[in-house]
Design a protein around this nucleic acid. Structure first.
Lengths: 236, 236
DNA sequence: TGGGATTTGTTCGTATGTATT
DNA sequence: GAATACATACGAACAAATCCC
């Protein structure tokens, strides 16, 4: 039973790895991303890395300065606020669709994810942070709309990046209970209430964040990247 | 007085050209986009064309099938509806910001655009179609928020693509009067009314569209592309 | 079915541009 | 301020997959 190898290209895998690394704050805003060291680390040539970086730049996670290399994007505070506002607006649509009739499978998927969040609570903090964002991405996926999935995915990742830049080190971004509340509201079928709860949740997340001024330093990103890279190398 | 050469890369210029071509329906959904012929047409190598195609694929305007080349995307009817719904939701934010206090420059810019739409009314239809979409993109630009500008831009272009696939040949997508109404509502400062008008406008556009089944044929895209290509070649 | 032609995926070398001493 | 070191931008060529007859 082959695990249904999805025909993902090598550069897509690198994208996924870098996105996770950014969301888990292993790669912090401002860190440089030279093509050849990444290529060496991921076991591929610069061309592939370049593709990945260009894609991430299109998504707003990476800044690509002409002839000056790539770096993890450093969104401004204004951008951060715009992103959260936009995200709430888009997720309204997601909530609306799910609340209109939550199937058993959808409910099970959301519960399974919350369970994983609970497990991760005792583990390393970056994992919890990533799972918290991915709960929202899962909701978007469950709508079955590629359009919603795509944009929630992108905006949520960018929000995660802004948190990495502006949030205090140990602010509790998680909010597992709030995810449980959202699920309950979805089950109730009350669209407006579900939207309210989700919106309040997002506002709480962004409010918990904006306290620390941006600080960029500490550069040993290559070691920080190792766990993400190995997954790509072993996939040939 | 040098016309301030914008530091746009060659591939970005090709992106812009292809986007315009798609929005003006010179490139229709399903048309193949071979790297070689595009490179020859734009006077550059395949590498650059490839970058542009990858970017357009990330934006959802182009479908990139592994080892099978690129083609203009063929969104499903469901996707089309999702895109218009999402677009209305995002543009709510745009309207909210502009209606909160429209400056003289913003007003002038919108009026100038409407004037151009009026001029184009007697000219070729594809230009009118493009200008109609770009009115919305201009509104997003005028908010000064790169985030809003970016996503309205992308979703609006994708909506234009869906219209190209599903709208009847000579459906009047334009609605210049509706744009005037939006501007008037923005000037009045009544956010809710402005949002209502904009939303109604978008619903009207998408309603005018969904009548024709998708039909793909007629392939002489190389000639159709010439006017877009020349602008790129002359920019070195 | 098979083979040739066409198109894409990838690598690598060179040129160009930027930062640094 | 000039020269050096470094990183990216671009293009030509090779290899692999697909398409078409």
């Amino acid at each position: 039973m082959v695990p249904r190898q999805p025909p993902k290209s090598r550069s897509e895998l690198i994208c996924v790895a870098l996105r996770s690394a950014i969301l888990e704050r292993a790669l912090q805003p401002g860190m440089k991303l030279p093509e050849d060291s990444l290529g060496e680390r991921f076991g591929t040539s610069r061309t592939i890395v370049r593709q990945a970086l260009e894609r991430l730049a299109a998504e707003g996670l990476v800044e690509l300065r002409h002839n000056r290399g790539a770096a993890v994007a450093m969104p401004s505070l204004e951008e951060a606020q715009d992103l959260f506002e936009l995200r709430a607006q888009i997720e309204d649509l997601v909530i609306m669709r799910l609340a209109a009739g939550l199937t058993a499978e959808q409910e099970a998927a959301l519960e399974a994810h919350i369970a994983r969040e609970e497990e991760a609570q005792s583990g390393p903090e970056p994992i919890s942070i990533r799972l918290a964002t991915e709960f929202h991405i899962l909701m978007a996926d469950l709508t079955g709309s590629p359009v919603l999935a795509r944009y929630v995915n992108e905006v949520a990742y960018r929000c995660g990046l802004t948190l990495s830049q502006f949030a205090r080190p140990h602010s509790t971004v998680c909010g597992i209970q709030e995810h449980r509340d959202i699920l309950a509201a979805l089950k109730s079928g009350d669209v407006v209430r579900a939207q309210d709860i989700a919106r309040t949740h997002l506002e709480a997340v962004s409010a918990r964040a904006q306290f620390k001024g941006a600080e960029i330093n500490g550069y040993s990103y290559l070691d920080a990247l190792e766990p993400y890279a190995s997954g790509v190398r072993n996939s040939g």
